[in-house]
Design a protein around this nucleic acid. Structure first.
Lengths: 237, 237
DNA sequence: GACAATTAAATGTCTGACAATTGGAAAGAT
DNA sequence: ATCTTTCCAATTGTCAGACATTTAATTGTC
């Protein structure tokens, strides 16, 4: 066994391994910090640092008080999607990924959902799509416009009825938001974008995956064009 | 501003926000723990818990010694892929996702890569694919066989030459490993799987995305069949 | 100039204490 | 007997001060 880099890291690794292996199930309560300190023969502070690391990864939550302690978290899809989206956003921003690359990834992955979405969507999905596109049509600032756009695409992905797919695509879709927020949408730009989204909804309603893929390509082209225009204008001034 | 749940959480949130906003760039050094404790008017222990949280998310690394301290991490694609794969694996295991759902997500996403991979692959990619399939052909245990299979598919995705795509797919591909590890591959099973992978490589070489998608469908069917057989055998005994 | 010893700065850890929170138990009122 | 209130114990959250360990710069020596 190689010497551990630090004690607290060692402890968090041991506990997270036990969670991953299923020895500690969701809802289980870990021993109290004092007990863990005894078990690992270290101070409470060291145990706490280990627990904070696990809490940062959403593996545990802590509750104070009499029947409190550290409890293994359930790791729901909803929470995982949120984390994944945030992490993807950070990754793109810190690596200065250009719009084309991110858009290519996003629309390529969305196109992959065409068949499943057409096959599996139900009334609720169509209602969610309609709601999102309606909001895009209302007067709002660019950030909200992009947020509604993102909601539309998330609803589209969810229509596949595959939570794992939704999880993976959430990162690709939502991480585009900061890049899209650099675009200033003129009135006629919005109209064009909204028209494309209505076409998307129509293709889904008509269960026509080929049309859906076609619209997605057009949408990628339109977005890229708008982005370039915004960038050039910014450079020009 | 609503009252914060805990001081250390507040601190880690503030710092991570500054990193996300770009105020703190990769490589920047944070103030020492003692200085941070002064700034936030709290004890060193509280600051340390906040820093551990950030370290758990790979946002910072710490170095001891004279010119040590906490430094903002670069968040490379390689590191992000590793984290994403681990997180996806955990998500699938903790939610007892069934094989079909995970496989549907994975193969749907892989099919999306067909066009780009065919268009952009180069000699290195083909060499990586050949290497992986050769390893699958060597005698090895089932776990290694699956690992080589995973490596093959990662190389296939990388052939798209889009790092964002590679990042997103890494989770989908690698998270399947534990499920695939439940399969026991008989000799003739391996031969069939290897044949399908050689066909994949061939389709890529011939830059035929349609053939590629076809093989992927066959591969999903084959894997699912093997998984069901393994499961039924386990139930029978 | 090269090498060794010293030193300073920083994280990692320990100890002990107190504050804040929470659930349950005991006590009291009705 | 039941409800309410009070108190208590367990547990996390935080603080303060100390020492150990690591690392790089500095100084001293040859």
């Amino acid at each position: 066994m190689p010497a551990s880099k630090s004690l607290s890291l060692d402890i968090s690794d041991q506990i997270s391994e036990r969670i991953a292996k299923g020895e500690l199930m969701a809802g289980d309560r870990l021993p109290s910090e004092a007990e863990l300190a005894q078990q690992f023969d270290c101070s409470r502070g060291t145990v706490r640092e280990a627990l904070k690391r696990l809490a940062a990864r959403n593996l545990i939550r802590t509750r104070r008080g009499h029947a409190g302690g550290a409890f293994v978290n359930a790791l729901t899809f909803a929470a995982a999607i949120e984390d994944h989206a945030a992490q993807s956003t950070l990754l793109l921003s810190m690596n200065a990924v250009d719009f084309e690359t991110a858009a290519e990834a996003r629309f390529t992955l969305e196109a992959a959902c065409a068949d499943l979405a057409c096959a599996n969507h139900d009334r609720k999905d169509m209602a969610a799509l309609k709601k999102a596109v309606d909001r895009m049509s209302q007067p709002c600032d660019d950030v909200d416009f992009c947020a509604h756009e993102t909601a539309f695409h998330c609803a589209y992905v969810d229509a596949c009825k595959n939570p794992v797919l939704s999880y993976h695509l959430a990162g690709a879709v939502q991480a585009m938001a900061p890049l899209m927020n650099m675009i200033t949408f003129a009135e006629r730009d919005r109209e064009a974008i909204i028209r494309l989204h209505r076409r998307m909804a129509g293709a889904l309603q008509g269960r026509s995956p080929n049309e859906l893929r076609h619209v997605l390509r057009d949408l990628e082209a339109a977005m890229t064009l708008l982005f370039h225009r915004a960038r050039d204008r910014r450079r020009g001034t």
